[in-house]
Amino acid sequence: MLELDRVARFYGHNLVFKDVSCTFAGGSMSLLLGNNGAGKSSLLRIMAGLARPSLGTARFTADSPKIGYLAHATFVYPALTALENLAFWRDVHGLDNTETDLLNVLARADIAGRAHDRAGTFSRGMAQRLNLARILLLAPDILLLDEPGAGLDAKSQALLRKEVLHARGRGACVVLVSHDLARDATLADRILLLEEGRLAYDGLPALFPPLADVEQACYA
């Protein structure tokens, strides 16, 4: 569904990574690992089409797939209510859901009770759940997650995991950037490791040799 061909990224004259080539299929979940500054977020943005690769190409093999991108930033307009926020994103993506649908989605994201409150009054966790509701509404074919769980409580994290697994279940291609290898490696069916400016590992989690070492490196 998504194909990277010798993608490279420079910041000024500094190489972040190069020669990243891989394809992502529908119904799969890949875990993208790497140290801080290894370029995980940059790679994810390139996949989303939000940034241009310095070299190489990133392209979608499916016809105009719906892309969901969930990162630390919540994309929430504080002065709009939760429902208005969702209605805006519905229009932006050209969807035809009714207000009842929107309320259902908000219920799935566990913020239906605050549907008519302004998003500015929400805590970070709630704002992120509203952001999740946006993704649920969109039902993307490609779901790109950039440490979306950061700063969320256990309940919100569980909700997030459930919905991500659900997305994979209905055939979406999921790519997850995470630091919590111990927890997320069990979900993934593929692990990608960005190290020293290249793709150092690309394969099954079971064969990923230095699990412990990498985890240490991630927190270093």
Partner: peptide, 12 residues
């Protein structure tokens, strides 16, 4: 404010 620009850019 919350980087919604990226969200808009993802629109078809």
């Amino acid at each position: 404010v919350n980087n919604s620009r990226l969200g808009l850019l993802l629109s078809p």
